[in-house]
Nucleic acid binder design. Structure first.
Length: 635
RNA sequence: GCUGAUGUGGCGCAACGGCAGCGCAACUGAUUUGUAAUCAGUAGGUUGGGGGUUCAAAUCCCCCCAUCAGCUCCA
């Protein structure tokens, strides 16, 4: 008797039937074993065929490995395709890969699917899974592949691009055959916990020039418990949605009369944004930055020099104004609202001749910019048409570049750890369409890499993903429920120094071009606020909360004392409010809890007499009475 | 911008060709309360905007606007 184990490359391995998981690791290496598909009962390996017979007693050893999950999800995509084909025999299939947490399949159908149709597809899938159909791999010639997929034009297009010399692999389960590299599960019976989640349009081959297909998204797991956990995590993310919390907490609002993507910040949101700015501003001054203030709009001439007039035109807000003194003698001048702050900082740099002794120059600005984002992409605070960058531009000599980048990474670390984010870095290198010579690119990219290494920051390389004007480091932060967001960015810019002809006098009195680093820590302050709301589920840390303490008088006779407490706290710089509504104290506590106020200070007869407050913390509850001075020390 | 869906008092929802309703919030009054919601009453709507079909439109059709899920984009 032997036992079959499925390896991640789709091949199989035979082991003696009494093998253990340790034997498997010893025979194929522990890395592979993590991704191999086999059953287990206790420490003993069990053949997957046996697994399928005894659903309840056997687990898949690799149920949590990413490779194994990918195989499961991709296979489930095939099962879905089989179900779709059964229900809609005219369906034409695009691609159906595994993605993070699930899979999708792009399908061309003459009928447009609605969310109600998913249940019918799921029902057929359930049946196919019960049938335990096996996935059979076959290798065919290119000619044969064209025959098999004669009525699947999208597949034919994919076959066109496959190399002639290689055999083409196809997988079949039941009546469904698909062009596919694999690997797959041994049987449909192993897909035990799936759910179709979403329906959306998606361009064929990701190109907006090509027709739009219908994409069905699903998620799949080896165990029902994992599926449930995943679904409840989605629910948790919905509860944290900054658009919902932002409204409930009175941070910001939208008004359709204002226009899409243009948030209005109410007092509490404005307060938080200012606190963030002041906190960062103080830090930046200490780190040798200087604040500048630049215009919100510029004559179009500036954008012509910078190149934005040609390359970023569709994303900018242009307008004409009457101006009899226009340079070319015409009656109007063209202006544009700034989509970025760089030109202003560059103009300030270029104002007078610079010496090498002045460098590095570090200009920062909380600069509000406007970008005409496509209507379909605006999303609360995370993608708005108007937002404020914590923008800075550093002009330096080549020998200063490395040190400056390291300093920026230190700053990023300080900011992100303050908010309890973990993060990672990605370095993007020269894209195919770019400016600047290879020497510059190589040097700049090497400086970014060396800075990460000197700072002990691990990074991934995104080959060819840099901006056309220079390489960059993007910082991906991970929030409290494991989602990643791109915030900070450090970009080397070859474009501006070149186009604005920036220079400085070197020690030998020659003219040199400075290096320019563009960097933002929060990215967009408003967007960062949105991320913080979701990260903290609305309960911002006490130092950042718009209201730090609500004073809750128990009865009307305590109102005077409550106001005294409020005044004393405000005098100490604490953001305090008195709950003056004619409501029972319980109601006031409930309201303050919902507003995520860090501290509630209950004052009644006892407190008024002894000059104390009874403190309730929003998470840990009643902390008991303490003297006002002691409470102040808490914050 | 593209595909699909959704817009009903401030918020959350119902009514789905036949009298626009409920809860919370708001307002008025009573209650003066010890840590997550006291009671009663009152008011609030050209159903996102415009056009059309119909005896009759929140409901069906068309065009805009906004929102949502994706795609594409993200200098």
């Amino acid at each position: 008797m032997s036992l079959k184990v499925w390896l991640p490359d789709g091949t199989q391995k035979e082991l003696p039937s009494d093998s253990t998981i340790a034997d498997l690791a010893a025979s194929i290496g522990s890395g592979l074993a993590k991704a191999a598909l086999a059953g287990k009962r206790g420490g003993q390996l069990v053949d997957l065929d046996t697994c399928l017979q005894n659903d309840d007693v056997v687990e898949i050893i690799t149920e949590r490995s990413p490779e194994a999950l990918d195989i499961l999800r991709h296979s489930t995509a095939h099962i879905m395709a089989e179900a779709v084909l059964e229900l809609y025999p005219n369906a034409q299939f695009g691609i159906g890969p595994a993605i993070e947490d699930g899979f999708y399949y792009d399908i061309e159908l003459d009928k447009s699917l609605s969310i109600d149709d998913l249940a019918a597809i799921e029902a057929v899938m359930e049946r196919l899974i019960t049938e335990k159909q096996s996935f059979a791999r076959d290798e065919v010639s290119k000619e044969r592949a064209y025959e098999i997929f004669a009525d699947q034009p999208l597949k034919l297009e994919l076959i066109d691009e496959l190399p002639v010399e290689e055999a083409i692999s196809v997988y079949q389960q039941g009546s469904f055959i698909d062009l596919c590299r694999g690997p797959h599960l041994p049987s449909t019976g192993l897909s035990k916990a799936f759910k179709l989640t979403k329906l959306a349009g998606a361009y064929w081959r990701g190109s907006s020039e090509r027709p739009m297909l219908q994409r069905i998204y699903g998620t799949a797991w080896f165990k029902k418990a994992d599926l449930d956990e995943y679904l409840s995590q989605i629910e948790e993310a919905e509860k944290r949605d900054h658009r919902k919390l932002g409204r409930e907490l009175g941070f910001y609002m939208m008004d359709e009369r204002a226009g899409a993507g243009l948030p209005l910040y109410q007092p509490k949101g404005a307060r938080v944004i200012r606190i963030l700015q002041e906190w960062l501003r103080r830090d930046l001054y200490e780190r040798g930055y200087e604040e500048v203030i630049t215009p919100h709009m510029y004559n179009a001439e500036v954008w012509k020099v910078s190149g934005h007039y040609d390359f970023y035109h569709d994303n900018m807000y242009f307008f004409e104004i009457d101006e009899s003194e226009a340079k070319d003698g015409s009656k109007t001048s063209e202006y544009a609202v700034k989509p970025m702050n760089c030109p202003g900082h560059v103009l300030i740099y270029a104002n007078h001749l610079r010496s090498y002794r002045e460098l590095p120059i570090r200009y920062f600005e909380f600069g509000t910019v406007y970008r005409h984002e496509l209507s379909g992409v605006v999303h609360g605070l995370l993608r708005a048409r108007g937002f404020t960058q914590d923008d800075a531009h550093i002009f330096c000599r080549s020998d200063q570049l490395l040190g400056e980048i390291i300093d920026i990474l230190k700053l990023i670390d300080h900011i992100m750890t303050t908010f309890e984010f973990t993060y990672s870095a990605e370095i993007s290198t020269q894209p195919s369409k770019s400016i600047g010579g290879k020497d510059k690119w190589d040097f700049a990219t090497e400086q970014l890499r060396a800075a990460c290494e000197a700072h002990g920051l691990s990074y991934e390389i995104n080959e060819g993903d840099g901006a056309f004007y220079g390489p960059k480091i993007d910082i991906m932060v991970k929030d409290a429920i494991g989602r990643t967001w791109q915030c900070s960015t450090v970009q080397i810019d070859f474009n501006f120094p070149e186009r604005f002809d920036l220079s400085y006098r070197s020690s030998d009195n020659s003219s040199e071009q400075p290096w320019m680093i563009h960097r933002a820590i929060f990215g967009s302050i408003e967007r960062f606020l949105g991320i913080l709301i979701e990260h903290y589920a609305g309960a911002l840390p006490a130092w950042l909360a718009p209201v730090q303490a609500v004073i809750i008088p128990i009865a009307d006779r305590h109102a005077d004392y409550a106001l005294q407490v409020e005044a004393a706290l405000k005098a100490a710089g604490i953001r305090a409010e008195t709950a003056a509504q004619k409501e029972p104290m319980k109601v006031k506590v409930a309201l303050a809890q919902q507003q995520q106020v860090p501290y509630m200070l209950v004052v009644g007869d006892k407190e008024s007499e002894e000059g104390s407050v009874s403190v309730r913390e929003r998470r840990s509850g009643d902390l008991g009475a303490m003297m006002l001075e002691d409470f102040k020390a808490l914050l």
